[in-house]
Design a protein around this nucleic acid. Structure first.
Length: 544
RNA sequence: UGGGGUGUCGCCAAGUGGUAAGGCACCGGGUUUUGAUCCCGGCAUUCGCAGGUUCGAAUCCUGCCACCCCAGCCA
């Protein structure tokens, strides 16, 4: 089933194997995928999902889907539903869904404990004052005047914060670590703030919310996570992660291991930027086929298996990386090549009249759905006097090695007969409007007795039986390989969507095929919402 | 001369002291009723740079250089 996946071994798997070998894992491998429900998942998340779920599966463990919902201002139920759907679509199963908010009471209690032990305090500096006294990258910070606040007073204040007595910004709880630390995260980090907003899970139960650094490690510990995998930017937070777990009464302490995020050429991967693309309507929603979101890739027609294969091929390291788009496209083609039925669709039509075939006479042809996989069966194709071929498949003055139709030249119509072009007809403005051709009955596909030699093979459709469809072709969203967040809007390719009409072979529509290769063009996906619309997933490789 | 990371082929990535895997891309050639697929073959005397240790170094040591991350009451 997953035979396509490459052999995976990376520093994280090696580490886990080592832990297993040394018997330090009491409950086996337990990982978690911890998205904040404040946006849709993208292919970068897919990398993390493949890692977390993949590793657990490989080592016989389990994975929790944990929503990191500590900021009610940004999070919503819409996102938790979408995230679940995307993960399932990607083909992974969690053992449980948890929410950081499930643990709010315990987290609160740990904060109370820390205050009681003099390891945390309620700080009543304004946000601005906290910022200023934090120091800079080179200069140490200075202690808050509230650092020495009596324990009892902090406890009292914290309880009243919870009770809703204060406005946002009036007080926060801070850890008492070291304002002189070269690691800014250790300069008395804020762990609780007041937010008077309804939470999508806890409603109005709380008006104080714990911050990520305090919450995440506690949840990992409470859930017995064996390996807490996250991205590189959290490396500086690890000392804080460890400090918290070392200073509260939990007796379990998972290791945090960081890996590099996925970079992909010609797109952006931050939620903030993706959000702007949607909000400012550069794209048509989160699931626009040009988006690197899971839902966008899905709507584009990318199979989940191709995404998994891609994630397996890019590996997991600590190196910054920007993967070329051609690797993703390779993975998509590799999957679709084996699985997608073939069909014919003419996108830029040129009329062809087969002059030696009587009006209303129809020849029935048979064509396999797949050249290498007979099990997919075959369909019937009609051949008549009026046909359409691709404009680009005829050239008055062909270059050397042109393998298509030319004046007086012969080509085979895929699955059909060889035809010869006898005459090209132009309208008053000099535009080519029609080709008159002769077909050779003896050259019928599969039983050719004509002895004729065609220049090449082109796709076509029969004029009276084909279906008119809408074809959407997508280019890169950006015209530079690595858009910078500062000016990414300036590099958006405004012409990344091309919509045109296509003439589609009848059988493709009748059989309601979702993923189809339009021969000689590319792989297409029948849009799930728009009728008679096909989205181009990826082009075929062009060999010349 | 704040701290934390990373540097192996155009893009990824193995390699963990014994003499540079693999994939994508690219370039040749073969098959082919998709200029697709498929199949063969080519593609780093060299591992950011400079020294050093060693019989032997991408792997150890020293010193440089480059790039990324951190100063949210975001995650």
């Amino acid at each position: 089933m997953e035979s396509m996946a490459v052999e995976k071994t990376d520093f994280i798997r090696q580490r886990i194997q080592k832990d297993l070998d040394q018997g330090v894992l009491d409950s086996g491998v337990i990982t978690r995928f911890p998205p904040e429900p404040n946006g849709y998942l993208h292919i970068g998340h897919a990398k993390s999902i493949c890692l977390n779920f993949g590793v657990a599966k490989e080592f016989g463990g389990k994975t929790f889907l944990r929503f990191d919902d500590t900021n009610p201002l940004k999070e919503s139920e819409e996102y938790v539903a979408a995230i679940q759907a995307d993960i399932e679509w990607l083909g992974f199963q969690w053992s449980d869904i948890t929410f950081a908010s499930n643990h709010f009471e315990e987290i609160y209690q740990y904060a109370v404990d820390l205050i009681s032990e003099g390891k945390a305090y309620v700080c009543s500096l304004s946000p601005e004052e906290i910022r200023v006294t934090r120091g800079t990258l080179k200069e140490p910070g200075v202690d808050s005047p509230f650092r020495a606040r009596p324990v009892a007073e902090s406890i009292d204040l914290f309880k009243r914060m919870r009770g809703g007595e204060f406005k946002e910004g009036e007080h926060v709880v801070r850890l008492k670590i070291d304002m002189g630390s070269p690691n800014i995260n250790l300069r008395d980090p804020v762990i609780y703030r007041i937010i008077h907003a309804s939470h999508h899970k806890t409603g109005d139960d709380w008006c104080i919310y714990p911050m990520y650094d305090f919450t995440h490690c506690i949840c990992d510990a409470l859930e017995g996570i064996s390996h807490s995998l996250c991205t590189l930017e959290f490396e500086d937070h690890r000392p804080l992660y460890d400090w918290v777990l070392d200073n509260i009464s939990v007796n379990y302490h998972p290791p945090q291991i960081e890996f590099s995020r996925l970079g992909l050429e010609y797109t952006v991967m931050s939620k903030r930027l993706l959000n702007r693309l949607v909000d400012e309507e550069f794209v048509d929603g989160w699931n626009d086929p040009r988006m690197p979101t899971v839902s966008g890739l899905k709507r584009r027609g990318v199979p989940a298996r191709a995404i998994r294969d891609f994630c397996a091929r890019i590996g997991v390291t600590k190196q910054e990386n920007t993967i070329e788009m051609n690797l993703l496209e390779f993975c998509i083609r590799a999957d679709l090549e084996k699985t997608a039925p073939r069909g014919m669709c003419v996108i830029d039509p040129l009329k062809v009249v087969v002059t030696n075939l009587p009006e209303n006479e129809i020849e029935k042809l048979s064509a396999d759905w797949h050249p290498q996989n007979p099990e997919l069966g075959a369909r019937e194709i009609l051949f008549g006097r009026d046909l359409y071929i691709e404009k680009g498949d005829f050239l008055e003055e062909p270059p050397a090695k042109f393998k298509r139709l030319t004046p007086g030249g012969m080509v085979r119509l895929r699955y059909g007969f060889i035809i010869r072009c006898d005459e090209a007809i132009y309208d008053d403005s000099g535009a080519l409007t029609q080709l008159n051709c002769t077909y050779f009955p003896e050259s019928r596909s599969g039983q050719d007795k004509s002895g004729l030699k065609a220049r090449g093979v082109i796709h076509w459709v029969e004029a009276n039986s084909c279906e008119l469809v809408s074809v959407r072709q997508y280019g890169r969203l950006f015209n530079v390989p690595m858009p910078k967040s500062a000016d990414f809007v300036d590099h958006i390719d405004k012409n990344s969507l091309t919509e045109s009409q296509g003439l589609l072979e009848k059988a493709v529509m009748e059989n309601e095929i979702d993923r189809i290769q339009f021969e000689r063009i590319g792989y297409f996906y029948r849009d799930p919402d728009l009728p008679r619309t096909y989205n181009k997933t990826v082009s075929l490789r062009e060999g010349f």
